[in-house]
Design a protein around this nucleic acid. Structure first.
Length: 539
RNA sequence: GCGCCGGUAGCUCAGGGGAUAGAGCAUCUGACUACGGAUCAGAAGGUCGGGGGUUCGAAUCCCUCUCGGCGCACCA
């Protein structure tokens, strides 16, 4: 797996350090490495001596001394030193930096991608948005679209086979009411009681009328609405592999799953209803599968839907849900356990809400109050890239205060442009290099050892962090770590750009810097790709 | 009442048990006859909501209190 150009990482260092522990007569133990906060503390650091101090009963610095003396370090380790209370800091040689540039360039789109230790490809279903097609997407759906898509990309980048799925309800009362509302509008009548209002209802009626689809309005209306939603998502660059309608489950799968759950002993009848004993699996209360009036519940459909996903061969089912759905988590786990699927195959990624502002003033997203703004209108106002990026640069766990007046700004206030600008600058350098007839040659022949300026080395070190950033962001289900990384990378590039002229008189230096630019550009492209944000050549 | 998320610089937020808690914005001071100034360099700014505990070491883990957001259907 490790190519000759890949610099030593935690795995290689751990092997060497474990050997050193052994030959120093110290107890065997895993040696973990982390990236030190400060540059002067090296490329990697381990606290193994601190951890051994207590069991061995000796001062940590003394232990560290023994370990370092016994260490047979990998070739690209320049020096190892003991610091602070007993940390062992590893400094890599310049050749390691050169290896990073070559790896980024030669691996190209695969740079930063990984695979599980056993190299097995597992299948994951990522379900997100799943807004019922009874109205346009609102801004909260936008966050979920950006998040779900980025999570799916992170799964893909770490070796999973991913299906992006959108689940919608095409079977319930709301759908019927929605269809009837559109039908009423088509006849020029007011909507039924508790029906849907809003200009889009009239617009849908007009569209269906123009298309001659007024015979079966109930179905035609939601399909048309789903088309609008798909178009909105498309503007954002989000595409689903599967749109799954609940109705399909009513053909027998719901009845089947209830029968199976009953056979398994988890179902009982009470008060005229059929219940699933979810409390067995940690839920607060049992849940109704079939109501006293004979109708199956949405919950019953959830049971059938999970069974359906498992039958389709997914090893993992991810549900991206808004914070208001946190109560569903225990329920989903209970379903998985009751079906014998196992809760470890179900995963919920929760995210907090979005508050909309314009210049500090609250903008409502609900239909209730005066100004309503749909997600489409938000994209109109700030652009797809800025919208997506803004949704993705915050932790899932924090509420986003989305101020449209800030997000349309195209300066350092708005990190998406800062990152995109760094990419456009590199593209500009490439254009200049072409114009001035630079012959870049091959990265293997480039004299990368010439890249010794501070800004150059810092840029390479930043690039080197990309693969571990992707791995960690994926593991933590935290796309914002990729966004923050991209900002740091852009910063390192801008500084390099300011301090180092790429296309210059020195042919060898020009070539070396050219390849550094290619490596930086590739890393930016890959990172922005995970976020679904464009990497423009010009802005 | 029970549960989930948050409280870190004036503001918006990062922060993976580790070393001196970091960015951006805002404020102040500087930088191009160079490949795009949507840029760069620097200064200043902190009881990490309060209190206990675990640990060699806690913003980080545990307990508790508090403030803010959200949720606790035979709705969808």
């Amino acid at each position: 797996m490790t190519s000759p150009t890949t610099p030593s990482g935690p795995e290689q260092l751990a092997v060497a350090f474990r050997a050193a522990l052994s030959s120093a007569g110290l107890p065997a133990r895993d040696v973990a490495f982390e990236r030190p906060r400060q540059r002067e503390h090296g490329d990697w650091a381990t606290n193994v001596a601190l951890a051994l101090a207590k069991p061995v009963g000796r001062p940590p610095r003394e232990i560290a001394r023994d370990v370092v003396d016994a260490l047979d370090a990998p070739a690209d380790v320049e020096r190892v030193e003991i610091a602070g209370p007993g940390f062992i800091n590893v400094h890599l040689a310049h050749s390691a930096l050169e290896g990073v540039v070559r790896a980024a360039v030669t691996q190209g789109p695969a740079w930063g991608r990984g695979a599980p230790a056993d190299n097995a490809v597992r299948r994951v279903n990522v379900e997100f948005v799943s807004a019922n097609p009874t109205g346009p997407l609102h801004v909260g759906h936008g966050r979920q679209a950006a998040l779900g898509d980025a999570l799916a990309s992170l799964f893909d980048a770490t070796g999973w086979a991913v299906t992006r799925e959108y689940y919608f309800n095409d079977a319930g009362n709301q759908m019927a009411l929605f269809g009837d509302s559109v039908a009423a509008a088509a006849r020029g009548e007011p909507p039924p009681d508790n029906g849907y209002h809003g200009a889009y209802i009239g617009q849908l009626a007009a569209e269906l009328s123009a298309a001659g689809q007024l015979d079966d309005v109930r179905d035609a209306a939601y399909r048309r609405m789903l088309d609008h939603i798909t178009a909105t998502l498309d503007r954002l660059g989000v595409r689903f592999d599967v749109y799954f309608g609940e109705r399909a489950l009513h053909a027998g799968e719901i009845a089947d799953v209830i029968a199976r759950l009953r056979d398994a002993g988890h179902v009982y009848d009470a008060d005229g209803a059929v219940w699933l004993r979810t409390t067995t699996f940690g839920d607060d209360k049992d849940r109704v599968l079939v109501k006293a009036d004979g109708a199956t519940t949405y919950f019953a459909a959830d049971c059938a839907y999970l069974a359906n996903k498992i039958a389709r061969g997914f090893d993992r089912c991810v549900y991206v849900l808004g914070a208001d759905h946190h109560g569903y988590i225990q329920r989903l786990y209970a379903i998985a356990d009751a079906e014998g699927v196992g809760r470890e195959r179900v995963e919920v990624v929760l995210h907090q809400f979005v508050n909309l502002f314009r210049g500090g003033e609250t903008v409502r997203m609900s239909k209730r109050t005066g100004e309503i703004i749909t997600f489409d209108e938000l994209i109109d106002e700030v652009g797809a890239d800025a919208a997506r990026y803004t949704f993705l640069r915050y932790s899932n766990d924090v509420t986003i205060d989305f101020d449209m007046a800030e997000v349309v700004k195209q300066d350092r206030d708005n990190p998406v442009y800062y990152v995109q600008y760094s990419h456009a600058r590199i593209a500009g350098i490439m254009r200049t290099a072409t114009e001035r007839g630079v012959v870049a040659g091959s990265v293997d022949d480039a004299r990368l050892e010439l890249l010794t300026a501070d800004a150059e080395e810092e840029l390479v070190r930043r690039i080197a962090l990309y693969p571990e950033t992707v791995a960690y962001a994926a593991e933590e289900r935290a796309p914002h770590k990729v966004a923050r990384y991209a900002e740091d990378l852009a910063e390192a590039f801008h500084r390099f750009y300011t301090e180092c002229q790429v296309v210059g008189d020195d042919v060898e230096l020009t070539r070396a810097r050219y390849w550094l630019c290619v490596a930086a550009r590739q890393t930016l492209v890959n990172a922005l790709g995970l976020l679904g944000v464009r990497a423009p050549d010009r802005m």
